[in-house]
Amino acid sequence: MSNVVPAPKLTRKDFESDQDVRWCPGCGDYSILANVQRVMPELGVPREKLVFVSGIGCSSRFPYYMNTYGFHTIHGRAPAVAMGIKAANPDLTVWLVTGDGDGLSIGGNHLMHCLRRNVDLNILLFNNRIYGLTKGQYSPTSEFGKITKSSPTGSVDFPVDPSTFAIGCSASFVARSIDVDATHLTEMLRRTAAHKGASFLEIYQNCNVFNDGAFDAFREKVHRDDRTIRVQHGKPLLFGKDNTRGLRIDSRTLSLEAVTLGENGVTEQEILLHDETNPTLAYMLARMPFPDFPVALGVLYAVDKPTYDGTLTAQRDASLKKNGQGDLHALLHSGNTWQVS
């Protein structure tokens, strides 16, 4: 986080704008908004230094509801706008809110480049596996064969997994959470905010109008323990009620195995330890096939590397040191000139 200045103690209310929230009742976006507003005061960034940037889609209405600076841009292009904001003023804390269509279909290119450049942004991708605002077409994260208005006989596209995509783009921080799990989500928001560089948080979000129940199989409280795994750096990759199940590696096939402790002599010793800095492990965790494996939630990957805006600033400072403040007169007179009197 850049520029943490002690500010008068703000509350969640201070981050609510005067606009009526216009998502459909019951939409997962409400919970995400509430959690973001709840976490904001903890971060200690003055409201005027916060900018929420978005593209187009249901999720992209987000900036209107935050009492911070906000820029609702055009479809898919928010990463580019956000990068320009950071290039102009690296002191600002910029949050980017996007969706699966905005971020991975029309804006996939920009998201990729913003991640690989490691622009210091906090990126929230609401993944509801559907186009909501345009009323229910399949999205790039919709499952193969999905029946929608634009795919009455089933979608013929294979989906992309957002977190896998982000890891593939060499993002320096990749995490995943669910809209309804407030505790986990707020924890992930804190980690996202704390990471310097492009922090990518995928949030499974229920669109109760066009894709209701998309994540119920693991989102419902009764299933959450058994069907998700909360990865934590340095801790064994255990899941299930009472942590009786775990992930181990089959070293001959270099693949993950979901095992039960005590079954077939499996001991905790064999369970993998999560290492946030291991991109291969992050990749494996991100794309574990459900339901044979649990869905991985938490910080899948996090490493430190120079940020784009930081390097820009460093280069500018170095140039200033080397050349001094630019002298326009000298520039115009550089090279061959001649005098006419």
Partner: peptide, 24 residues
Amino acid sequence: HFGVTTIQAEDEIAAICLALGASY
């Protein structure tokens, strides 16, 4: 050293969008 930042963007759209972000 003249306070000029140049960004070679990933495409023409990003190029204008980041310029607009900078103006903002």
